[in-house]
Design a protein around this nucleic acid. Sequence first.
DNA 1: AAGCAAGGTTCATTATTTGAACCACGAGTT
DNA 2: AACTCGTGGTTCAAATAATGAACCTTGCTT
Lengths: 261, 261
Amino acid sequence: MGTITKALNLLNYFSENMPEIGLMEFRNLTGTDKATIHRHLTEMLANGYLEQNRQTRKYRLGAAVLRLASIRERTFPARRIVSQWVERLSRELGELVHASVIQQSGMSPLCYNDFGTGGTRVYFSEAEMLPLHATASGLAALAFGDPSLLKQSLKSGLKKFTDHTISGTEELERQVSQTRENGFAFAEQTYEREVSSIAVPFYENSGFAYGTISVAVPTSRMNAGTRQRFAGALAKASKDISTELGGNLPEQLEQAWYRAA
Amino acid sequence: MGTITKALNLLNYFSENMPEIGLMEFRNLTGTDKATIHRHLTEMLANGYLEQNRQTRKYRLGAAVLRLASIRERTFPARRIVSQWVERLSRELGELVHASVIQQSGMSPLCYNDFGTGGTRVYFSEAEMLPLHATASGLAALAFGDPSLLKQSLKSGLKKFTDHTISGTEELERQVSQTRENGFAFAEQTYEREVSSIAVPFYENSGFAYGTISVAVPTSRMNAGTRQRFAGALAKASKDISTELGGNLPEQLEQAWYRAA
DNA sequence: AAGCAAGGTTCATTATTTGAACCACGAGTT
DNA sequence: AACTCGTGGTTCAAATAATGAACCTTGCTT
């Protein structure tokens, strides 16, 4: 692992619940030496990726990320486009809907919306990366994204989150081909207990999936009927999103959706 | 310069006009070896800070910056707070108003607004960093920000942007003390021809300025009257912004504004 | 098919990162 | 006031990772 990755990984510890992090906290979180972390932090501080609270000396995310995010959204407005559909879908289905972009290290959340009305709600954080092998979004990514993702996942260990998390490599391969056949991914309590979700990929200008859109519900509300309904709505949204992003859905996927409907 | 800084600097080349950059373009822009750049790019790609266009193989900013920006705004909503005042001010003054956060390497734009009505408009980009010695915002930062900024600036060379750009170190020191006395910074055609601007600092929870808010106008519209008007409006906005950010204005600054009014 | 330019890779050399030990500071305790 | 504990921050020899010249591959142009 290179120095750049080590430094950038530090930024991943920030979240809604942990907006400021001190040097020692970082040491405890990462396990690497204080001096090393300090060097990395000061370098990112100098570049504006971090700011320091002068009173507590703790670090928080800096203004540079705002600048870059602004440029990205102005020039490649994937989030704006996707969030429209996420909102509509959430309203239509009355459940939590979220979209993520596929990365090597996992799924990076883009946006989410929850117009849910039920007493039980699924919690979703835009801060944390979703694992590829333990979520419906991740399965969809492995099934329809760049094949190197699957190779990588099969090689590296599959962390167990719940009793239902996929653990064996052959089990993962089986689930991935099932996902390819169905045209959508399904995961029941594989990441968080009592949460089931269903996901489909969407496409940008390449032959492999760019991201995924997903519905997550309390397991009690997931059955054959709702599953069918969610899958249909997601497939429709995926078509529209892909078109807006300038991408095309693979034949295979459209056929699978046609069979399912 | 460390490896992390070299890598992060690559991200600074992205802008509205240059949303995608190829390996060779990076080489020409930076002058460093292709292999080195490639390593840096792939590492940032793996971490989601970059994405690659599969057709052109060019790189663009990745979804990670959106994720981080979202966390930062949710937990430390400086941009949201400041942009309200920037909007109001722009509407009130009928000119371009922008705000930036002070960093070691320069000013990082936060937001801007232009409700200008005049035939001539000032162009402002949220992508590019503003130099400390050549803009009103920068002067305000040097005068009221962390003293190490001024030390740093005096040591490093002062790049010349126009005939009016401050060049000598004693000239810079003079302008900085003038700014401290006035309570606001003034710069005429020091960065771009035919553009004059005026800026004041605002404060967060520390004793030194956190950012600056500024009005930029065509030089033809800047005179004693408008200057007075802009300075007064900026000072008022700075007080409100600083309060909302949980900061206090230094006595000295409030006194200078009182004298000016 | 040949030529060109861009993206990408390799591997010995080199320079940078690394971390144990150390210092400084402030808060709470005796 | 001295003491301790837990921070943040710094130093410098040792070790590791970054570097770049040369090389390969790919896709487009002629």
